[in-house]
Design a binder for these strands. Sequence first.
DNA 1: AAGCGGATAGCAAGCGCTTTCTATCCAAGA
DNA 2: TCTTGGATAGAAAGCGCTTGCTATCCGCTT
Lengths: 355, 355
Amino acid sequence: MTVTLSDVAARAQVSPATVSRVLNGNYPVAAATRERVLRAVDDLDYVLNGPASSLAAATSDLVGILVNDIADPFFGIMAGAVQSEIGGPGGRAGGERMAVVCNTGGSPERELTYLTLLQRQRAAAVVLTGGALEDPAHAAAVSAKLARLADAGTRIVLCGRPPLEDSDAATATLTFDNRSGGRRLTEHLLTLGHRRIGYVAGPMERTTTRHRLEGHRDALAASGTGSAGNGDQEELTVHGPYTRQSGYEATLELLRRAPDLTAIVAANDTVALGASAALRERGLRIPDDISVAGFDDLPFSVDAVPALTTVRLPLHEAGARAGRLATGAEAPPPGGVATIGAELMVRGSTAPPCR
Amino acid sequence: MTVTLSDVAARAQVSPATVSRVLNGNYPVAAATRERVLRAVDDLDYVLNGPASSLAAATSDLVGILVNDIADPFFGIMAGAVQSEIGGPGGRAGGERMAVVCNTGGSPERELTYLTLLQRQRAAAVVLTGGALEDPAHAAAVSAKLARLADAGTRIVLCGRPPLEDSDAATATLTFDNRSGGRRLTEHLLTLGHRRIGYVAGPMERTTTRHRLEGHRDALAASGTGSAGNGDQEELTVHGPYTRQSGYEATLELLRRAPDLTAIVAANDTVALGASAALRERGLRIPDDISVAGFDDLPFSVDAVPALTTVRLPLHEAGARAGRLATGAEAPPPGGVATIGAELMVRGSTAPPCR
DNA sequence: AAGCGGATAGCAAGCGCTTTCTATCCAAGA
DNA sequence: TCTTGGATAGAAAGCGCTTGCTATCCGCTT
């Protein structure tokens, strides 16, 4: 019922071995023979049995991409870029690799389960995107799992998260410079004259959250604003998930705590959108009454009104590079770690305070 | 070097068959034996060999999801919803299925290539999302491919595209009512008093594009606006890809052709954002000088300023249902086709014309 | 007491492909 | 003319798992 290699072989009057070699193309086969085989493949509408190949060859052409939330363009852009570079049908290489996008939803267990599933599939590579959870136990579990994957020949690439602690594994890491991005953003606000700045942070225990927040506080501290007569920094920080709603609610909370804020920095652009909505609803004009800034520079940020001041992360470039690293098309950076810069994008949502 | 089933069997002092049965859980195994086996699995850190299982069992637990652009939330939301329902680690079922998200980039060849790749992997199901290309040759090729997949036991689900012509295959289809959504949107504008309405359409030859445009023209025709003294409808329609930039450029073009437009309808929200940017740049206020409307109701639309009037498509619900259909968790709709309604969301970007 | 049948477990035959090792063939060198 | 070796093609041994069929063990029935 299903056509197999031997069927093709029979029709082309060659051995199965030859058909396999024609299909894999890494062994000399006479042109005439190849022709005959290809014609037979075509005639019979033959499709290779992937599992059988993978079993026999002990490798697969699946590349796993772990993301927190595929519906979030932050991850969608990276995932798309990875996929475009791994040599699948969409890629330049025109290979046959397929991307398996795994949605962890930010859950540590799912992250591990997916890693196991990918190990089970003998994935050719695994790309972990986005910030990592800072729980030591979980970090250790992930490291262990990755080490085992690497042992089995799976390439590991981290994209947008800090390098592994025990980076003994041959892991390539592309890390975003969230801290200096955060610092520069807040410096920009300080330069404009803001002194009372609210911060809507991401969820606790995420590296991304912490680094951005640290950058923010570094800037405040450096300017002497952090400590002196500025109330408690903790007081001006509210944590929540990376969602619009969180930005909305956190902003209302901040306004309650400190009605005299002249600026609000959000953990990312999505959160900033929610924050803006809340401010607008409160009758505050942006940036006249209060400035707002985001992070990531997602595509919609430039279309916000006023356009959102934010920190641009080259998500597409990073994803593409991660894809190349995953396939070995690009050599890993020296030391295994490359830091990807963040660029401040000053737009209409920030202006000098007027009070 | 790698642990196999027999290693586990040896350690648990049972036969490989028994280990397999414990792991697959569809055969009676005495509790004590099961215990012993599971302990051995744990001790040895055993991970099943996916390709080997798939080969022996002639099935896999991969579910393919074809999308035009994973970086676009329209597809991201659907893909995420599908994945959450197929019983992978993220799903309620907690099964072991994995989603393979395939980015076609809208290219017909890639669509076919991915379908072949999924066939090769013996995918358990394939979900095709978004509008289809209207090229008869390509449609036939896809149909043929799907028929072959279905033959091989792969479930086929179409989500957000019209049913197949020759729907002999056991294909479940969830189709969006783009036409009536488009009609209602334009009726809304007509009711407000608009008569000169520009339309920024999607790419030619896409079902989505055509249906939305037809809805628009139906509404115009029904009101008598389409023909009488309203210039050529063609004149007021510009096609382009579903991107912000396209919306921007098409809007400038429309303004050039007909400076007296009082409203612009965009093919989707992303395009509407670009259109708004162009209008704003031209010094036109929304909705005072000109109304703007989109389609899809993507998350950012409510945060546009003014909030975007649009047509809401229940992307998440549709994706979730598609996921359930893909796993057989839900029975296919009668006739194999279910139409999913579109809801008009009137917001701030549309108002009566003032000229 | 002999017979039966349900509940478990094992045997062994593949699943369809890759790949090592061998066998052939033929042109060119000695 | 005989040898030598590069270029191709084939034989066959798995890869690690699933599963139909068979074997065994017991507690009961008759």
